[in-house]
Design a protein around this nucleic acid. Structure first.
Lengths: 209, 209
DNA sequence: AAAAGTTAATTAAACGTTTGTTTAAATTCT
DNA sequence: AGAATTTAAACAAACGTTTAATTAACTTTT
């Protein structure tokens, strides 16, 4: 089986799904853009929905749980772990903006129930780990008595917010509308610094910000 | 013209659009759920897309810019303005979860270009005002030298994050999956408190948190 | 090493549904 | 009576999918 072609189709799929949504993308449109015959998509993936699932699985496997490794690392303090997680998240999201837009869409829309639940439990997994770290920091009296799940929501929500729309992000950052903030290393730095400053100020009791 | 019926259709529309997306919702499905004839939608609104636009406009008019009023209020300090804005945002979002999910979808998907731009400029407007408040606070040396647009992204992003999926929100908050967090006054209180604490800790130089 | 045979890949065309929309007749309201 | 509303039926277009025929790529046989 020509894996190149399969991957090429998935690449085009994530692109189209991210800008037009799943229902808003037709097989014909996809086939034309990928320069393959319409029947090839069903030949390779079985159905449009299977293509979607396969593509998600394929993309998700690229970025599997570094967070668990960070949590287990005994040599890091709790705040260092959070810093590490912030850097990881930002790096991942920025490296695959289209994929993460598709994930967000799938969270918002509960049309394909099974997939919807899959994406939810994927998020839930990461939540548990980060919440556990924050709770540990509180128990050790290194952190203030914050609301752990909402702190996590603020980290992930901030990133999601700027990833939601390139145009909106440029507007926010006062950049030209043809700019691509997600490939701009300065934007990445800025986002990481903001998140760290926010988390440090909110969590740390001693003020060494 | 029977305005009741028009509004009823729009009510069902925002419900279906929020769970199935615009493309994922069919006129027939909508007509059946609203208990009207299929042709009535085109009779009242002209087309499916016009219904969508009209519904957005109708819903948006309910929650027009209190933020501008808050900004103009001379009797409030900058941090008090931000507190007020946080309360306003949370109250609005929680009162219309379906509508805001539709807005978020429209930001993610750039299928209907004109509408997409409309939603963007609606957000952009609010951004400008909040950013201006934060900048003023920095100039007055009441706030730390934070990144104003990203601070705003964190506020709005946190709310969006918990509004994205009821299931995810319940999972996050350790509630039963049939719970409706958006109608729970305790959740509202918790969210507001978290946001205020976050913003205060991050912005205020003196530590009267 | 060439030919025959077998499987995999690719194609254009057609399939039955479903889509949003329109029509023209019937009903209701003023 | 006349205008606004409501209806069931029909419209063409687009949808995801399947089919059956053709080409390409390997394997096996001689």
């Amino acid at each position: 089986m020509s894996n190149d072609k399969r991957e090429h189709i998935m690449e085009v799929a994530v692109e189209l799904f991210s800008t037009n949504g799943f229902e808003g993308t037709s097989i014909r449109q996809l086939a034309q853009r990928a320069d393959v015959n319409i029947a090839m998509i069903n030949y390779y993936f079985g159905s449009k929905e299977k293509l979607f699932e396969t593509m998600l699985e394929h993309k998700a496997s690229y970025m599997r749980n570094r967070i668990e490794a960070v949590e287990a690392d005994q040599s890091l303090t709790e705040i260092e772990k959070l810093d590490q997680i912030i850097e990881d998240y930002v790096a991942r999201f920025l490296s695959q903006p289209e994929f993460h837009r598709v994930l967000q869409q799938e969270l918002l829309v509960s049309q394909r129930e099974a997939l919807h639940q899959n994406v939810i439990s994927l998020f839930a997994k990461n939540t548990q780990n980060v919440v556990a770290i924050i709770e540990k920091g509180i128990r050790k009296k290194q952190f203030r008595k914050v609301d752990p799940p909402l702190v996590f929501s603020s980290i992930i929500g901030t990133i999601n917010q700027v990833m939601q729309s390139r145009t909106l992000c440029n507007m926010l950052m006062n950049k030209a509308s043809d700019n691509n903030p997600y490939q701009d290393p300065q934007f990445k730095k800025r986002l990481i610094q903001h998140l760290k400053q926010m988390i440090h100020a909110q969590l740390l009791i001693e003020k060494d910000i």
